[in-house]
Design a protein around this nucleic acid. Structure first.
Lengths: 355, 355
DNA sequence: AGTTAGCACTTGATGCTTTTGAGTGCTAAA
DNA sequence: TTTAGCACTCAAAAGCATCAAGTGCTAACT
């Protein structure tokens, strides 16, 4: 897209063609690619010797590497990067795929949480990689507290959040509640806890509220807890994976050690949130693992943030081996996120068939 | 518990002792156990030859098997079953464990969904196996409707469900709301929709309510939608796993093939729901995999249904290798579910320290 | 009777060497 | 500048001997 990025020196057309063929073949087969293969199967019109020379140079330049002397070449992180940025042919979604996507979208209009998740499931199925659904954290606070007494030991704490939504939490106490009790408590909350983030709740505040409640001081603690939960939950955004077991199918993750590494990565959901917040919010982002990064060296993560009014509200992505069908994955994710953003912003869902 | 079940013939005390030692040792070490080990490490006061004879008979009877001629013995499914039913010593939770459990329980009172999930997380950590949290589909209905007006276009619909929990939905309408409007609407719901399942909502009911609402008929539709959502969501049960990556640590799942089988099992959440519905609702259930069952042969699933008023509302369980620390897992799960049921049924949470 | 020492036997695991074959880099010729 | 040819490298596979754990059985012992 961005013209002719210079990565490790400019590449002749022939080098590009060879590099692309190697990466395409490697993505398709998962094995190191040798010069002979390129002559016969990819139709590079040169002898294997010539190709070997070129490959040696590409290796020198950092685009390729050899697992060992007598093996073929495998793309490096740099190689993949260059491939994704300038070499790759864009994949055209098939009609079936578009129909599947649109059907899913149509049936879920209106529920953001579920739409992201269903989309993610679909992506996992269409691409056959593990997909990732991220709902971003919003730093919400409470605008106003109100309540509803349910019975003599339970009341409902109703919190109008800084967004347009309302959160409710059921609060249980051992002491006996009455309308009076609870409404006093809620006035306290309205006085002390409006616009307050989880970290701002100090012990002092709690003590103050407790003394103000007098004999019903025992009410304060569970209510604070409920409040904390409400504010904190909206903070803990969540990351969900679909089709994790698809990872098992790829030979690069076929040793238990590698699986362990990958799974422990997946466990660290914060890492994915980090990547989201460090990402470019207006386009597809492609992380490709290498030795230094916390990212397992043979894996990649492709995702596209979802934004509303310039705010990132989540993302949909795909996690898999760095030998990934970038082209197809990128097209699929791109298509979906475009459409979802459209729906969120209230535009109508276009009919299947248009490109 | 159920006295002396006869499995494959009655066992002499000595056979029982040997069988128990073998299974204990195998659970601890994960390797086939030979006669020599029992003489030295477990303190069976007989010579290895005698033990070998007994082992041969236990094998004959189906409690043990040999991976190959020159290997020690490993428990069979039947062996584990017998062990769990009559041999195993019950594990005493440590003080630390009880404290952890109670703390978690205390902090989550009131929200069934989260309580089950947090409990599950804790179980995964305490036992170091993958834990399973099941929320059963309950055919829940609404016991009583109430409301709270939020602003002139939104109100909160509060539904006390047939269980002890409360669900709330925010309802938005374009027409202007007032206390009067909404409370009339809720009386209608209390008249027509109490104890009603999603399928029971007929068009006729809706029309009736709309005509009763007169000029505010437009309120009915979104409210019905909210009601439907509340009742329908509780229908789709879900199964969630925590600590799936712990599976990778056990040698029985150390080949990728085995992992594939296990993961594909885990993907089939319906299977777990099936097992729940075929289970004994009043006690710990232990499924032990064998060759025939859909269950991977070297895995086991231990769970305890959670019931309220005799109705199964979910379950907490543990999934792991059949070589599992049954004793500890069962104690942990038992303790937790007892306490959770207590909480759900409104009994106070006992202090840590009591057994 | 029940128990045990002793021993031959089986068999996966371990470690070694050999073979194989894919793929390279280099040289010399076209 | 390209290519044919060839010697070289090295991981993976195959073959093989050795090891050690654990058994089952027999014969002796209490």
């Amino acid at each position: 897209m961005s013209g002719e990025l210079i990565y490790g020196g400019p590449l002749s057309e022939r080098k590009k063609r060879i590099l692309r063929s190697i990466i395409d073949a490697h993505i398709a087969m998962g094995e190191p690619i040798g010069s002979k293969y390129l002559v016969t199967s990819a139709e590079i019109p040169f002898s294997s010797a010539t190709i070997r020379n070129e490959m040696a140079e590409l290796t020198e330049m950092g685009y390729l590497e050899q697992p060992h002397t007598s093996a073929g070449r495998v793309p490096t992180q740099l190689g993949y990067r260059f491939y994704v940025d300038s070499l790759m042919e864009s994949y055209k979604l098939t009609a079936t795929e578009i129909v599947a996507l649109n059907n899913m979208l149509k049936s879920k209009i209106g529920e953001l949480d579920t739409i992201i998740q269903s989309a993610s499931k679909l992506v996992a199925n269409l691409t056959n990689y593990t997909s990732v659904a991220i709902k971003a954290s919003e730093r919400e606070t409470v605008r106003a507290f109100s309540h509803m007494v349910l019975d003599e030991h339970n009341f409902l704490m109703v919190m109008k959040m800084s967004g347009e939504n309302v959160k409710t939490k059921q609060v249980h106490t051992d002491i006996v509640l009455d309308e009076n009790n609870v409404s006093r408590l809620m006035s306290l909350f309205n006085a002390y806890c409006v616009g307050v983030t989880p970290e701002d709740i100090t012990y002092a505040t709690i003590v103050k509220m407790e003394s103000a409640m007098g004999s019903a001081a025992a009410l304060v603690n569970p209510a604070v807890k409920a409040f904390y939960d409400a504010v904190a939950t909206s903070t803990d955004s969540n990351v969900r994976f679909e089709g994790v077991n698809k990872l098992l199918e790829y030979p690069e993750f076929s040793s238990v050690d590698q699986l362990k590494r990958v799974f422990s990565m997946i466990e660290n959901k914060e890492d994915f949130l980090d990547m989201l917040s460090n990402s470019d919010r207006n386009k597809i982002n492609v992380f490709i693992g290498d030795e230094e990064s916390r990212f397992a060296s043979n894996s990649a993560f492709i995702f596209r943030p979802l934004t509303v009014d310039g705010k990132v509200i989540g993302a949909i992505g795909v996690f898999g081996p760095s030998r990934m069908d970038y082209s197809k994955v990128i097209s699929t994710v791109e298509y979906l996120t475009q459409k979802i953003t459209g729906i969120i912003e209230g535009r109508a869902l276009p009919e299947p068939g248009e490109e």
